[in-house]
Amino acid sequence: MHITLKVWRQKNQQDRGHFETYQLDQVNEDMSFLEMFDVLNDQLIREGKDPVAFDHDCREGICGMCSMYINGRPHGPLKGTTTCQLHMRHFKDGDTIVVEPWRAAAFPVIKDLVVDRSAFDRIMQAGGFISVNTGSAPDANAIPVEKDKADAAFAAAACIGCGACVAACKNSSAMLFVSAKIAQLALLPQGQPERKTRVLNMIAQMDKEGFGSCSNIGSCEAECPKEIPITFIAKANREYLQAMLAPDLPE
């Protein structure tokens, strides 16, 4: 396969950045998208040029580190698939592929296709946890959890924190990411004690980090590589409304 790649190159955060065009002649259809970039980088290094920096680690679709915006879509055209699991057989010989980094004010570009997603960690620090110290937990079977709720909590917890939802959203909103964590913990009995403060704090932090608000457009759900449903955003909205209208203690 012959592929023309238009790749965003940006030296560092201050650099304005630009596109470079590369020709790849020997792309194999069984290659993954990232393996194609390995081949490109190999070629660039041999030519004495700077290889393209991109984030990746597990290459099996679970660590959430890979993050390419491919032909206008986060993680490319295939539904429910991360960039590392996207294979070249989904492209045609002679295709031109445009690759950009995630773009959002809250995800500044570090270099080329590498962006800083530490905002997600800070949102988690704002409340994405249950405050329980090691050693003090009751027996795991002491509190039964309805299977349906446990399954729903798992579906929310399947989020890999890659940021595709932000990259896809017109508003660069992180609501799908934030709501998945809020929903997971709100569905479980263990998450009840901090339920109200959690939703308020996490959403406040999301705002502080510079993510937009949700307009229920649905791009996030369509592009999420783990297919986290947008219904969790509605769930988080309800949690927010409850926390705001019915605080537990008089202020």
Partner: peptide, 20 residues
């Protein structure tokens, strides 16, 4: 507010594939 959240726009914007 939301229009300020993406200062650098995408060169290719494929939102038609994922939303109305």
């Amino acid at each position: 507010s939301n229009s300020k959240k993406r200062p650098v726009k995408y060169a290719v914007w494929g939102a038609s594939a994922n939303s109305h």
